[in-house]
């Protein structure tokens, strides 16, 4: 807004007033984007560390929970994202080569990949909700297809009490079901040894649990498994949290790609100025990369 007329003639339109050269502006933008992506990686890094800690404390709940994820859908989504990364890279190259039509084509393909990913994710989520596998304590309310009542305390095979549900009012004034362990002896609530919660109570000996005899395959809800370890709901909480945050980033990516597509249609990008396409591409690659880690962590191992 304070660009003086004298400066305007030496500056291309896209060059903002406080930069001296387009190269300086491009490099500033690129460094800024890399730093921003570093913060994104650290944001997810907290969750990845949490994943390691929770998994380290409760390997059995990850084992019992992960069989309810659909590996095929996850694999398709992984392929979709990898393909969209390739088309994004192609889009950047097309911008650098001044090929506006090809740029728009590849941006559209990338966008299509992003949308496909979210659609598949939507079906995965809604299928689980349909089965009663909800995030939070709703998980314990009404597993579909389960005939016996699950109110009251849930005693699992390991002898521990999962939790006891108490109806009450939530912090936002909503009706919630909160967990409490009023009847439980301290020994079932707290582990017997110093260490993270549940280490002693939940660690099942290999013989305690029917090995992968396939009987878990036809279950539609973890609570139907009488041999389930305590706190199996935690697996799904972590799953929803990490894939949910990733999904938010994919949705943001759709916004960015749409904006780029509009810019490309208006002819804003050229071999002299392709910074937004390049930076948008960097962001998209990082979003893909995070999924490349999420997929094996939840679906495969």
């Amino acid at each position: 807004m304070t660009v003086s007329p004298a400066h305007a003639h030496e500056h291309p339109d896209f060059l903002r007033h406080h930069f001296n050269t387009p190269k300086q502006q491009f490099e500033a933008g690129k460094l800024g984007m890399w730093l921003f992506l570093a913060t994104e990686v650290l944001l997810f890094g907290g969750l990845f560390v949490g994943y390691s800690v929770w998994r380290g404390n409760h390997p059995e709940m990850f084992k019992a929970g992960s069989i309810f994820l659909n590996t095929n859908l996850g694999a398709v989504n992984t392929a979709v994202l990898i393909l969209s990364s390739i088309t994004m890279a192609a889009a950047v190259t097309m911008a650098q080569r001044n090929k506006r039509g090809a740029l728009m084509l590849f941006l559209s393909l990338t966008l299509a990949g992003a949308v496909t990913f979210l659609v598949i994710k939507y079906f995965e989520y809604t299928h689980k909700f349909h089965l009663g596998i909800y995030p939070g304590l709703k998980f314990y309310e009404k597993p579909a297809g389960d005939s016996h009542t699950l109110s009251g305390s849930l005693v699992n095979d390991a002898g521990g009490v999962d939790l006891v549900l108490v109806k009450g009012t939530g912090p936002l004034g909503q009706d919630v079901t909160v967990a409490d362990t009023p009847e439980a002896e301290p020994t079932t609530v707290a582990p017997a040894a110093i260490g993270p919660a549940g280490l002693a109570q939940d660690a099942l000996e290999p013989g305690d649990r029917p090995a992968d005899d396939g009987h878990a395959e036809h279950l539609t809800h973890p609570l139907q498994d009488p041999h389930r370890p305590a706190n199996v709901h935690m697996f799904f909480n972590i799953y929803y949290l990490m894939t949910g945050l990733h999904g938010v980033h994919v949705a943001a990516g759709i916004g960015v790609l749409t904006w780029l597509l509009i810019g490309a249609a208006k002819g804003r990008f050229s071999s002299a100025y392709f910074t937004p396409v390049d930076l948008g591409g960097l962001y998209w690659h990082v979003v893909d990369l995070i999924w490349i880690f999420l997929f094996p962590l939840f679906y495969l191992i």
Binding site: L43, G46, W54, V178, V189, A197, M234
Partner: peptide
């Protein structure tokens, strides 16, 4: 700073929905 960001995000989720990631009685830490 991103780490405090994700931490308070988890705190909000935990407080609002009681999912138990930091609650020892629900398997958290």
């Amino acid at each position: 700073t991103p780490v405090i960001g994700i931490t308070v995000l988890l705190l909000i989720v935990e407080r609002a929905f009681g999912i138990g990631i930091f609650d020892a009685s629900l398997g958290g830490d």
